Amino acid sequence: MTDLKNELRSLIVEALRLNQPPESIPENNLTATLGLDSINSLELLILVEDHFKIRINDEDLSVALVDSLDVLSNYITGKLLLPSQDSGEAEVGAII
Rank of each mutant, 00 (worst) to 15 (best):
V13D: 01
L42T: 14
I25N: 02
E59C: 01
D37P: 03
P83C: 05
S87T: 15
R17T: 07
L4Y: 01
E27K: 09
G88T: 07
P21S: 15
Q20Y: 00
I12F: 04
T33D: 09
L45C: 04
S84F: 03
L47A: 09
L69T: 10
Y75I: 03
E23R: 01
L36A: 03
F52G: 09
G35F: 09
L65Q: 10
L69H: 08
D58N: 14
L4F: 00
I46S: 07
P83L: 14
R17S: 11
I95F: 11
P22H: 05
R9E: 06
D3A: 13
T2H: 08
I39L: 15
D3I: 14
L30P: 09
L81A: 13
L36T: 08
A32C: 02
S84C: 11
E27L: 11
L16D: 02
N6E: 15
V63S: 14
T77A: 12
N19F: 08
E59A: 13
L80R: 14
D70M: 07
N29W: 02
K5P: 03
I46M: 15
S68G: 08
V71W: 00
L80V: 08
L45A: 06
I56M: 07
L11R: 01
I56F: 05
L61C: 11
H51M: 05
E23A: 07
I95G: 02
D67P: 13
V92E: 11
E14V: 03
L72R: 13
E49W: 03
A90E: 12
E43P: 00
V71D: 07
S10V: 02
L69I: 08
S10D: 08
I96E: 08
N29L: 05
H51N: 15
I54Y: 12
L18E: 04
I12E: 03
Y75V: 05
K79C: 10
E23C: 02
D50L: 11
L42C: 05
S10Q: 10
L81Q: 15
L42V: 15
L61H: 12
T31W: 01
N6M: 11
Q85R: 13
L65S: 12
D70V: 12
G93C: 06
L81V: 06
V13A: 01
N19Y: 05
L72A: 11
L8H: 06
N28W: 00
I25A: 02
G78A: 10
D86H: 10
A64L: 10
A15F: 01
I12G: 02
S24C: 00
G88E: 09
E43Q: 14
M1N: 10
L44G: 04
E43H: 05
L42F: 14
I96R: 08
R9I: 01
I76D: 06
L11C: 06
R9A: 03
E89Q: 14
D58H: 09
S73Y: 02
D67A: 13
S87M: 04
Y75F: 13
P83F: 10
V92M: 12
I76G: 07
S41I: 09
I25R: 00
L36P: 04
S62C: 12
L80F: 06
L82M: 10
V13G: 00
T2P: 04
K79Y: 08
D3W: 00
E23Q: 14
R17N: 14
L34T: 03
L30V: 09
A90I: 12
S10K: 12
R55T: 15
K53G: 03
L18P: 04
L80M: 13
T77N: 14
L36M: 15
D58Q: 14
R9F: 04
L61A: 09
